[in-house]
Nucleic acid binder design. Sequence first.
RNA 1: GCUCCGUUCGUCUAGUUGGCCUAGGACGUAAGAUUUUCAUUCUUAAAAUCGCGGGUUCGAAUCCCGCACGGAGUACCA
Length: 513
Amino acid sequence: MAKVRVRFAPSPTGPLHIGGVRTALYNYLFARQHGGDMILRIEDTDQTRFVPGAEDYIIEALTWLGITFDEGVHIGGAYGPYRQSDRKAMYKQYADQLLRDGWAYYAFDKPEALEAKRKEFEQQKKTFQYDCHTRGDMQNSLTLSAEEVQRRLDSGEHYVVRFKFPADLDITVHDLIRGDVTMNSNLLDDKVLFKSDGMPTYHLANIVDDHTMEVSHVIRGEEWLPSAPLHVMLYRAFGWEDTMPQFAHLPLLLKPEGNGKLSKRDGDRLGFPVFPLDWIDPHSGEKSSGYRERGYFPEAVVNMLALLGWNPGTEQELFTMDELIKAFDISRISKNGAKFNVDKAKWFNHQYMQQHSDEEVAAMFQPSLDEHGIVADHDYVVKVCGMMKERINFISEMWDTTSYFFVAPTEYDPAAIKKRWKAGMTGHMRKVIEILDTQPFEYEALHKALLDDYIAANQLNTGQIMNSLRLAVVGKTVGPDMLTLVMMLGKEETKRRVERAISVIGEPDSDNQ
RNA sequence: GCUCCGUUCGUCUAGUUGGCCUAGGACGUAAGAUUUUCAUUCUUAAAAUCGCGGGUUCGAAUCCCGCACGGAGUACCA
């Protein structure tokens, strides 16, 4: 078998959609598994849709996710250039070859004429298609005399080159995911291959590039399946059928609710990103949020995406990139579209949060501490992160769940006061301060003095006292083991917080029993 | 409209050659256990008559046919 060479070939028309990211990922996994090459090709044949910054965005997003390339616009390679606009000059000769061999023809029909035809058909409740049935009625090199065609060409009249589908031919595309898909040429239209602006369309450029770049496998979205027969015919027309790449059309990513393909708007409306990175539209200024800025780990995004439409056939769900490369198998890609599930995405992030070392989590948390003006001992921060990371999905949640490790509460949750601060509590809290003052500041000693000697001996309710202490120290009824927290905060800080609670909350009304 | 693709718990899916399927797992949901609280963790539960209707077969989620529904395509866009 020839060397595996795959390409990811996006259009720089905006930010890379998460479905596109998955396509890139599957290509990458396949290439790496087979020791093949991964190519990044930019398909910018439509100059009207070019969006500045999109190409850089694509590269930055894939780099963030750990999807690397062997050749491409950003790194060069032996098969360059890798941007179709930079390859413009080479497409004409291929269009000419098709023209010469009778696989294509010139068409001079003006856009208005085509539009008029469509209207005309519409009135008869039919759809106009430029194909083997209608091309005889149009202005093209099939209907015009050779002299007339030459005259128009010489006079510089605009033209396009269209593919000439043979009549009534069954064309079979072998797809690695779907098996054989057959379509009849009578239903296919004579697609434009070469535009009047001198640029090829996707179809021509794609086939020429895949062939000249020696691409072995085309792994792309399902939206391309309907035009796959044209692509197969192009390989045949060029005489390249023996080296034609294998096709695999990936199922689409669907909206989490309702129907339809996942689209740009869904993300922010439903509270999850549709793009890998934040993106600000250069024209409208409209912002779309990305996974990175939302606090997702690249490993989590990769893992989640890999399992959306593919599964290893085992019950393993957590995969490193290397494990994915080993386990990936095109034949195990599902055929049906997948609805996006935000909760599962969060769960993956939670899993990777646990896998990161306390040190790494602390480093990621540091900017948040800086933002709140906290200057804390590094080892202390690492310890807090280690204790608390299991409670959160995102680093952005760390401050809210750990702030009391760094700053004393300034207010106390009223509901908690009602529930946890019963009559006589100020007396109990003063006793806690006394115990802190008189006992060695060690976990075991405090545990004994508080739980055994004071609470048990006075036949008090353990939870009641400890929860009240928590309210005084934390300000609310959440947190880790109480005495561990006290040990972390230190004797003086704990005392200060308890004293403050006594003075701020005071002795409850007698009816708070 | 036409062409093609698809259809298993709410969601992602296992089930690839028909019988170990009284349809398995994960997320989410609910209940319980653990914990001084919350969270974590653990256990358990509810949850798909395998889109519907026919057929083939001793036996079908798995094969065949029809229908329904969903999706994609139908541009000098990719």
